[in-house]
Write a protein that binds this DNA or RNA. Structure first.
Lengths: 191, 191
DNA sequence: CCGTAACAAACGAACGTTCGTTTGTCTATG
DNA sequence: CATAGACAAACGAACGTTCGTTTGTTACGG
């Protein structure tokens, strides 16, 4: 008989899964316990509060997106290369961490003011990376001159963030096809 | 002193506002009562359950989007004209009924199976309208030949649905500017 | 190598609070 | 005067969390 014991990371991961599926307020500590074969009360051996779990999941999401943006901004080559790196990195973050990404995108507003403003700042910085690269693309002639980097970055991020809503691992588009389709769509929109 | 009494529509409208802001599970009947200057229990003079309120709001959303799609499909002229009508109608629905739209887009999954599958069907039909018009555009030479109407409709709807997340009535883009920017972006992406 | 102390993980009961909802009563309006 | 709207009290269930305790594993001194 294999009695696997749970670690804190198991709890955080399961929390991400349930928060993504049912929402933060739609998930009870007893729900979360059941998911791990535990009582709700047993979770407090690993975490200090339910809010704490949300903080952990959302901050991991913020870290993942931030790292992806930093990586893309450092890509040498044309603005088009960096633009594609932003898209490729975003796709990787979402499909490799779908629960974290969904919780980050949908449940961050349930955080208290302090933590939420940290997340808002992270999101603004992430959008700033897109704006920067798009502005580079405009000034270097890769994109149309009449596009507004601010508005365009919102539109492009809209398409990327929606991935969380419809992507299925067993769907017809694998990672590479997804990046191709998204890059083509977004690049065409700006060219 | 004007003590306006509340009607059922007042309750549904306030429910839409709170569901949009805090989510269905993040809104209590006492919260909703406070919003109207009532006790939570007083709401039961108007509705039979909290779930009922969600059904009302979400179904109104479904009706609004469906009507908009029907209207756009009936537009005479080029596929480009119908495509712009789809976008224009979507923008109108969202900015004129922001709370209903947000609840429809984000809280429909909290419905029980029966009602949710009705909403999923409505959403599929709405996406179908986009797919149809895009396919017309491809076969009549308005859009690129190598685009997939199914994938493209998802991408275009991603941009439109995200409007709910960042649109502010006092923002720099008014309705017409919004329709212009979105139509330009989407049409460029497909051309 | 054995025995024991320390520890982390989980239990199960209970806490106070909030939840959605029901009930019976009052009040104002048409 | 009938009725719809609101009140206020109360219901049982569920909530997040705490508590004292038990269990299984790990580390170490003799």
């Amino acid at each position: 008989m294999v009695t696997t014991r749970n670690t804190r990371d198991d709890v955080v991961q399961a929390a991400g899964r349930l928060f993504a599926e049912r929402g933060y307020h739609g998930t009870s500590m007893r729900d979360l316990g059941s998911e791990l074969g535990l009582l709700g009360s047993s979770l407090y051996a690993h975490v200090s509060s339910k809010q704490d779990l949300l903080v952990d999941v959302v901050e991991e999401g913020a870290r993942l997106f931030e790292a992806s943006a930093q990586n893309a901004l450092a890509v040498e080559g044309t603005p088009g290369d960096r633009f594609r790196a932003l898209i490729s990195g975003h796709v990787d973050v979402v499909i490799d961490n779908i629960d974290v990404a969904r919780t980050f995108l949908n449940e961050a507003r349930m955080l208290d003011h302090e933590h939420r403003s940290r997340v808002v700042a992270a999101r603004d910085a992430y959008e700033g990376a897109f704006r920067t690269v798009i502005a580079q693309g405009v000034s270097e002639g890769y994109f149309r001159e009449d596009i507004d980097p601010k508005t365009s970055s919102i539109f492009v991020l809209s398409v990327l963030n929606a991935l969380e809503r419809w992507y299925r691992p067993d769907g017809p588009l694998d990672r590479d096809a997804l990046v191709d389709e998204l890059s083509m769509f977004a690049a065409s929109a700006l060219s």
